[in-house]
């Protein structure tokens, strides 16, 4: 948690990042940036999915519809915050010549997406009449 707070400070203070270690090959930094963008797209897709649930499933019971939409929007927010945090950690690890940070997040996200998918199946089978 303290680590996270320090990272948040670094998001807004790019000069501090440059003080540590040495600048890695720019290609590694660009690869890191692309990974960040891929996670950002995942987040945007989740947010878009939240809007889509709200818009394109109007026959659904209110609680189900809002619950699913909010779950997807929340997952999108988490995903985007984690994207910038992970990008920053990778960038710092590369500057210091350390191993890249490992993360539990991809597994966590896939479990959440699976749960939402199962919930959708249940909703389509049971809750449609509402």
């Amino acid at each position: 948690m303290i680590d996270f707070a320090r990272n948040v400070r670094l998001w807004f203070a790019p000069e501090q990042v440059r003080e540590e270690g040495h600048t890695p090959d720019y290609r590694f930094s660009l690869a890191n940036e692309r990974t960040f963008l891929a996670w950002l797209r995942t987040a945007l897709a989740l947010i878009g999915g939240g809007f889509a649930v709200d818009q394109f499933l109007p026959d659904l019971r209110w609680a189900w519809r809002v619950g699913l939409a909010l779950a997807l929007l929340g997952a999108g927010v988490l995903c985007s915050l984690r994207a910038v945090n992970h990008w920053m950690r990778c960038e710092r690890a590369m500057r210091r010549g350390e191993d890249l940070p490992v993360s539990r997040f991809p597994a966590l996200l896939s479990v959440v997406v699976a749960i939402v998918a199962v919930a959708m199946v249940v909703v389509v089978l049971v809750g449609w009449e509402g």
């Binding site: 670094l10 998001w11 720019y26 939240g50 709200d54 929007l73 920053m88 960038e91």
Partner: peptide
């Protein structure tokens, strides 16, 4: 190419988060 500035990345993320907040308010 210069490295992406953290401020730049944070700004992009904040746009995304704010859009999700709008979504929550609308839903």
């Amino acid at each position: 190419p210069v490295v992406l500035a953290p401020r730049h990345a944070t700004a992009a993320i904040l746009c995304t988060v704010a859009m999700a907040a709008c979504g929550a308010a609308l839903v």
